[in-house]
């Protein structure tokens, strides 16, 4: 359970502050989760069936920083974004995020297939807690950016995957956030839209006070971000300037895959 301590507001509190954060999953409650398969051999998985997706994370993002979160699958990257977005509550420790948040996790969440683009925009706006009037004002711009053409009046169930993602992107990026949380969304739709969405994200990044960007695309992380943290097994194992951390991570991964393929060949030879 989260600590009940009330944080004292300092002179200039950072936009993001995680202290002693831990997120625990109880695998007995969620037997169907894939987590179990990926983590079974992991030390984090204790006998009681509890599993720490994040453990002892202290993380502070100052205004103006953009932080890339890198690491292998199952390292806790997405969990971290979910905690920052307020979707998951920490089991221990404290989360503080200040300011308006925009999360670009999976696009198109909250759409109702029976409603049209306009209605869905308003619906997702309500899920996000954006005041209705403000949302109504934004609808034309959102629809225009999504570029749905004549489909704007049709039900979302008739949309192609790309159209759905475009609408999702355009709704999610319509907020002007103080804190921007991104999870690998730069590859949405066709080439033209990717270009357009890249531009939009750059714009948001320029205006946001803090950015956390989860990605496997190390090159774009090195270009966009000022800082990078590497997660492994739910803990932060590296933190520093983006270029340095990413270069070190790449070297480590290359070494690891070399060892893996060598042992793989050895096993095959052994047979």
């Amino acid at each position: 359970m989260a600590q009940r301590k009330i944080s004292r507001v300092q002179a200039a509190p950072p936009p993001i502050l995680l202290t002693g954060l831990g997120v625990q999953y109880d695998l007995r409650l969620s037997k169907k989760r894939k987590l179990r398969d990926t983590v079974l051999r992991d030390g984090r998985h204790s006998q009681s069936g509890k599993f720490w997706a994040l453990r002892d994370v202290d993380f502070r993002v100052e205004a103006g920083e953009s932080v890339a979160v890198i690491g292998p699958n199952g390292a806790g990257k997405s969990t971290m974004l979910q905690v920052l977005a307020g979707i998951l509550e920490p089991s221990v420790g404290k989360v503080e995020v200040r300011g308006k948040i925009a999360t670009l996790l999976q696009l198109g969440a909250g759409f109702d297939p029976e409603l049209n683009a306009r209605e869905n925009t308003l619906l997702v706006g309500e899920f996000l807690g954006i005041p209705h009037k403000e949302m109504v004002r934004r609808v034309p711009a959102i629809l225009e950016f999504a570029g749905l053409g004549e489909f704007a009046e049709a039900e979302v169930r008739t949309y192609s995957t790309g159209m759905r993602a475009r609408l999702g992107f355009s709704v999610a990026t319509s907020v002007e956030p103080d804190v921007l949380l991104l999870d690998e969304v730069l590859s949405t739709g066709d080439a033209a839209f990717i270009e357009k969405s890249r531009g939009r994200i750059m714009e948001l990044m320029k205006r946001a006070r803090a950015i956390v960007f989860v990605t496997h695309d190390l090159d774009s992380a090195a270009t966009f971000c000022t800082r990078a943290i590497e997660l492994e097994g739910g803990r932060i194992v590296a933190d520093g300037p983006a270029k340095r951390v990413i270069a070190a991570y790449k070297k480590k991964m290359a070494k690891r895959s070399a060892t893996a393929s060598r042992s793989g060949q050895g096993a095959r030879r052994g047979n």
Binding site: P15, G64, A85, G86, K94, V97, G99
Partner: peptide, 11 residues
């Protein structure tokens, strides 16, 4: 960069 809107939204 704005320095305002430091209201706690998560936590």
């Amino acid at each position: 960069m704005t320095t305002h809107s430091t209201e706690l939204t998560v936590g």
